[in-house]
Every structure is written in C-alpha cells, then in structure tokens.
Design a protein around this nucleic acid. Structure first.
Lengths: 125, 125
DNA sequence: AATTGAGATAGACACTTGTCGATGCGCTTC
DNA sequence: GAAGCGCATCGACAAGTGTCTATCTCAATT
C-alpha cells in the first residue's frame, strides 16, 4: 500500500523545553510544578539512561541508533528501546530519522540545559 | 549521664560535592560513574523532595526544622524525616544544628550547582 | 514472494520506593 | 521525677520500575 511512510512514533507528553518550573531558588514549588519537574528528573535518574545520553552526546550529531547502544551497555534490545522511550517521553531525546531499518535518536541538549538551569540558575557562572 | 551531646547522625555515604563524574558531554560515563550520579539524581527526582528543597531554600539561611515542613506538604512527620534522610544521604542537605527538640536541616547549595554543571556545563552562561 | 534483520510491543517478574501507623529516644517544662 | 513534645526508627503495604523472553511489524535484500 503506497501510504504514508509512518511518521515515527511521537510520544512526548511533556512540553519541549524545561518551561515547566521556576528555578528551585525562586520560590516554593507547587505540587503540580514539583510533579512535572520530577517526571523529567526521574528520566535521567537512572544509570542506564545516563549512559545512553552520554553515549549519544559523544556520537557525531548527538545521534545514535538502537543497535549502536545495545552492545556498549550489555543490555538487550527491548531494554534499550524501553529506556529510549522514557527519555523521549521526557523530551530529552527525539526520534530523529529512520534510515532503512535503523532508527536514529538525537539528544535534545536544550532540555538538559533547561533542567540544569532550574536546579541551579547560576551554574556555570 | 554527662556524656557527649550525641553529634547529630551523619549519614552521607556520598562525597560532599558533585565530584563524582565528568560532565555528560565530556565522554561516555562508566557504569560506576553512572551509578553514582544516578543516586544523587534519584534523590531530587521526587516531587516531595523537590518541594522540601524549595521550601528550605526559601527559608532564612536555607534552613528549616522538620516541624516547619510537615504542614505545608500535608504529609506525616515520619515521611518528612524519611525524605530528609534521603536528601542527606545524597549530600543535598545536612543536619545543621539542634535547638532544643528541633533539628534544623540546611540545603547544601554547592551540591545542587554541582549536579547542574554535570548535566549542562554551560548552563547559565 | 520469501528471507533477513532492526526495532517496537506485550507480558512477566523481582526489586525498589513512597507512604503510613506505631513505637522509642531525648530534651524541655512543669 | 513526671508529663509533653519533636524527631528518629521500625514494620508493613501498595505502587512503580528495570530487566528479561517471546512475539510482531516493517523495510531491505535476494
């Protein structure tokens, strides 16, 4: 069927950037703000996902396909896919392009810097 | 018994600052580095603990006693103590002083900025 | 058309975690 | 010394989570 090329599953229930909350030092967070920020932080508060991010960041274009990430971490392919899904749901990575059977994910570096600036608005200063 | 004044339970299994890992963008993390960083991030990846931190940061001297934190969050006292313990174990707060029956915890702001600089070394620049 | 191969999905299971009620310890006040 | 209060600890339980095996889908190749 010559239909549409299946536009890559978009998951992102979370807005693209870290525009959810004021900096921690600004004022006490509401329950909703804390909940939303915690969702993003939970996404990176996992050793496997941290390694995934650092591997992708070290790759050209901050991109990598699932196959490139499976072996270095010593985990199965469904597990890697599971973690990439979680990262995508938090807006930290995005399914970029699909070359043949390979799906390439890219790190959204703005999401990382956004999180960092919420934790410590003066970081890097 | 005129013994020692019980030197406030120190929990911190984690080194004081965020000197555990290079920035994410520097190089792929080892399993150990990722594990240690995840421990710290898990500590703040919780809505209750985020609100605790923001409440303490908004208090004079970035300090607060357990009694000040129980009511604003609508949780029981053992639960607040539990979370303060977790934050202390991650080096994000420290049991500062004890006035009568009150125990005051203080936010270690360097720990927050340290985490932020690992996530995004250029944040705030 | 058949085969191969990458990745997504589903289901299962062990483990962790957030919360609570009950209890114990230490300091303060009566 | 007895009572009251703040905080820590203990035990329990529901909910969430990371990992796996098995299966399915879709694209590329033969």
């Amino acid at each position: 069927m010559g239909g549409m090329p299946k536009p890559l599953p978009v998951i992102q229930p979370v807005p693209p950037a870290a525009a959810c909350c004021p900096p921690l030092t600004a004022a006490p967070l509401t329950a909703e703000q804390a909940e939303e920020l915690a969702v993003r932080l939970k996404a990176i508060a996992d050793p496997t996902r941290l390694r995934l991010l650092s591997l992708m960041l070290a790759s050209p274009g901050m991109q990598a396909c699932t196959c490139d990430l499976t072996e270095p971490l010593g985990l199965t392919q469904p597990t890697i896919t599971h973690h990439l899904r979680k990262l995508a749901a938090a807006g930290l990575v995005v399914p970029e392009r699909r070359v043949g059977n390979f799906t390439y994910y890219r790190v959204v570096s703005d999401a990382l810097t956004g999180l960092a600036s919420i934790l410590a608005p003066v970081a890097g200063a």
